[in-house]
Design a protein around this nucleic acid. Structure first.
Length: 711
RNA sequence: GCGCGAUUAGCUCAGUUGGUUAGAGCAAUCCGUUUACACCGGAAAGGUCGGGGGUUCGAGUCCCUCAUCGCGCACCA
């Protein structure tokens, strides 16, 4: 008996050594797993791809939950005899990282706009690589049994080329196109964003009604109205029957007389406002669509910085917020203001990072044609090729897929993978190499999700890597519920498009990890819980259990420190269970004949082992963890050990011997079952059991209940 | 507007295909220092499972409806 058992379990003294031991064993790499272990499953692969953390900051509690769940899945499968591969990586996280870095620059009194693109890129790269290294160590400290030898980074040159090739292929297949369309422009970040990178926020804004010749037209954006020379109404609107489509009218407007043209279009809601509206095709999606249908002129009113252009006359150069009131004032003076409704509620789009108002702008960008791809994805889900945990996420997925619009993948930022596209005389071509003389390369980079969407392919070596045939498709995608559209949807699309196979048959979505009061953690609220502070204080096993027990897929979790503390106590309880058993069974004959009561105890745990195995197989991790906790503490410790005391100290040598052997067996069965959730303390105890050999992490799983591999 | 959740003990949550007296952790109460563990043990307490209706031999669980809270999506200017 080692003397460390005489003291309470000390996680901080134990964990680094255990992790180093695992890493040195090489068993995180499935190529090195012992043949006799793999023989159980005839070498079947089991692959999990780690959602690559954004290499722009520290690991947060959500990462800790994800890493814990993925490690639980991987460790169990490894023990079951699968060639278990969990691939780590890091994401350059284009826009997100650039935003983080810009904030850093701001603090230093610098700005990206004064910098050479190459210089900025080099700085962000250095920043990212430093973060990446830190985060890897943080992932290690959570006990992650991932194969570091296969680690990938989205900016690895080989990966960059693969991502670019996908784009070229999509271009050739007609699935991406270059088009001037309305995009979500962030005036602060000076880039366009995809639809899901904006937040729709309901606001109360004044709704103005102005006289526009014989019409009353409504707007919340007077500052865009300079170029409005079309007045649109529904063709069936009897109030305006006297006006004919295409008819022109002379009327007085903001900066003088203009010629307006009547347009009839079904997009106009007759019941809304007066049923007549003017349009600003350059700065409104719906107006753009109308203009396109009728071949109308489009003119930019607001520049890329959010200031009015010369068309605004005396208002040129003003910011929107400043100009709006002044324009209304002028229209009022001219007698053109009919009414103002101050209680009008409308939905405005904001940049999801800086909350600036998104300015719709018409811009040439690369778009992915989503309809055919989304259709493939929905078909696959309908066929049951992808299952969601929790189940209802499937509905959310389908709803989004069926309604999604084309995806703008061009970003006007340096931090990203360059789009391999070339322009000449209004022509656009996708190609890794220049098509020839006079072609200019696209300066934009990809939406970061264009590359991370291919992550299961990139990490397994698509298309010709050695791992690809073995480890793709993967077994399960475990990630945060909040990125189902950003990421999960895109991975399914790219997987189907490039390989005709879904990248994973199972999607497990965890909820948010909130603070103790259930509030979302945020730096501004100051309620961020750093998972590493908790592991330092209570141990990694304790944090892992606290994240997993009672936490069903898809449900948000309130992370309370006392819960973590409770599982620290549990780790100590295990420690003492082990101490008691090992201390009192040193002389045990492990082959002693068991009594009926002993057989019953063995059978009871075997039933639990099967039960827990099924729970884990079916992603009921919360149940498995709780059942094992309950068994260890309230059954084994509170009852079985107490009942055993009189027996093992009794005079009846045979009964004592039988019980001692039984207790040892219970311990060596329980430890593997708990190992996926609490890898450190279980491994540490295992190393001190006389009859144990090798590592707990590669000890066969104590239940042969059915299980499944990658497919 | 469309869609998705949630509502169970003081708090945080489980309750897997409907099946005995609805569970856990934490908190609170009482007792206990017994040959692992006070980071402990024992005991007791605590819920008309949001309201209403329905299906069923039987409903926390299925259906309808209402209420409250939360989330997602959205091109009515």
């Amino acid at each position: 008996m080692h003397e460390k058992f005489l003291k309470p379990y000390d996680s901080s003294a134990t964990e680094p050594g255990i992790y180093a031991m695992w890493e040195e064993s090489g068993y995180f790499n499935p190529d090195n797993l012992p043949a006799e272990l793999l023989a159980q499953m005839e070498g079947k692969p089991y692959t999990v791809v780690m959602p690559p953390p954004n290499a722009n900051g520290d690991l947060h509690a959500g990462h800790a939950l994800g890493v814990t769940l993925q490690d639980i899945f991987t460790r169990m499968k490894r023990m079951q005899g699968y060639r278990a591969l969990w691939i780590p990586g890091a994401d350059h996280a284009g826009f997100e990282t650039q935003v983080v870095y810009e904030k850093k620059l701001e603090k230093e009194g610098r700005s990206r706009f004064g910098m050479e693109p190459k210089e900025l890129y080099a700085e962000i790269l250095a920043f990212t690589l430093a973060n990446k290294a830190t985060m890897q160590n943080q992932v290690r400290s959570l006990g992650a049994s991932c194969d570091w030898s296969r680690e990938k980074f989205t900016l690895d040159p080989e990966l960059v080329t693969k991502v670019q090739k996908t784009f070229v292929k999509m271009f050739e297949d007609g699935l991406v196109y270059r088009g001037a369309r309305t995009v979500n422009w962030c005036p602060k970040h000076q880039t366009s964003l995809s639809d899901i990178e904006t937040d729709s926020v309901e606001e109360t804004s004044p709704f103005y009604t102005f006289k526009y010749g014989p019409f009353d037209i409504g707007t919340v954006r007077p500052e865009t109205k300079f170029g409005d020379k079309y007045v649109v109404m529904h063709p069936d609107d009897t109030r305006y029957a006297e006006y004919k489509h295409g008819q022109t009218l002379e009327l007085e407007w903001i900066n003088g007389p203009i010629t307006a043209t009547v347009i009839k279009d079904n997009a106009v809601e007759m019941e809304f406002g007066t049923g007549a509206m003017t349009i600003t095709p350059w700065h409104s999606q719906i107006d753009f669509e109308i203009a396109k249908r009728h071949g109308l002129d489009m003119e930019q009113i607001i520049d890329w910085r959010g200031k009015l252009l010369p068309i605004a006359g005396e208002f040129e150069g003003m910011k929107i917020a400043e100009a709006r009131g002044k324009i209304v004032e002028k229209l009022k003076e001219k007698g053109l203001l009919v009414s103002v409704d101050d209680s009008y509620k409308n939905v405005v789009k904001k940049c999801y990072k800086c909350q600036s108002m998104i300015e719709p702008q018409v811009k040439d960008q690369w778009f992915v044609s989503m309809a055919p791809l989304a259709n493939m994805a929905v078909t696959a889900v309908n066929k049951g090729d992808v299952r969601f945990f929790p189940e209802h996420e499937e509905k959310i997925f389908r709803h989004w897929m069926e309604n999604t619009l084309d995806w703008n993948i061009s970003r006007q930022i340096v931090w990203g993978i360059p789009i391999p596209a070339w322009f000449k005389d209004g022509e656009s071509v996708a190609s890794l190499e220049s098509p020839g003389e006079g072609w200019e390369q696209d300066t934009d980079t990809f939406d970061t999700w264009f590359s991370s969407g291919q992550w299961p392919l990139l990490t397994t070596g698509y298309p010709d890597g050695d791992d690809f045939p073995t480890y793709y498709p993967t077994a399960v995608m475990e990630t945060g519920r909040d990125i189902i559209f950003f990421w999960v949807a895109r991975m399914i699309i790219f997987g189907l498009y490039l390989t005709d196979q879904v990248p994973f048959p199972t999607v497990y979505l965890h909820g948010l990890v909130n603070d103790a009061n259930g509030k979302k953690m945020s730096k501004s609220k100051g309620n961020v819980i750093n998972p590493l502070t908790l592991t330092d204080k209570y141990g990694t096993d304790a944090l892992r259990m606290a994240l997993v027990v009672g936490n069903t897929p898809g449900t948000d979790l309130a992370l309370r420190e006392d819960k973590v503390k409770g599982y620290k106590h549990f780790a100590n309880k295990l420690w003492n269970i082990a101490r008691f058993i090992l201390e009192n069974t040193q002389d045990a004959d492990l082959a002693a004949t068991r009594t009926e009561a002993d057989e019953a105890l063995i059978a009871e745990l075997a039933v639990l082992a099967d039960d827990v195995t099924l729970d884990l197989e079916n992603y009921r991790v919360h149940l498995a963890a709780e059942k094992l906790y309950h068994y260890a503490w309230h059954r084994l410790a509170d009852e079985i050990l107490e009942e055993s005391k009189p027996l093992i100290f009794a005079e009846d040598v045979e009964v004592a011997a039988a019980r001692k052997a039984t207790l040892r067996s219970l311990l060596t069965t329980l430890l593997p079952l708990l190992h996926p959730m609490m890898p450190f303390v279980t491994e540490e105890i295992w190393q001190n059991i006389p009859e144990s050999t090798g590592y707990l992490m590669t000890t066969p799983w104590p239940s042969k209940t059915s299980s499944h591999a990658n497919t």
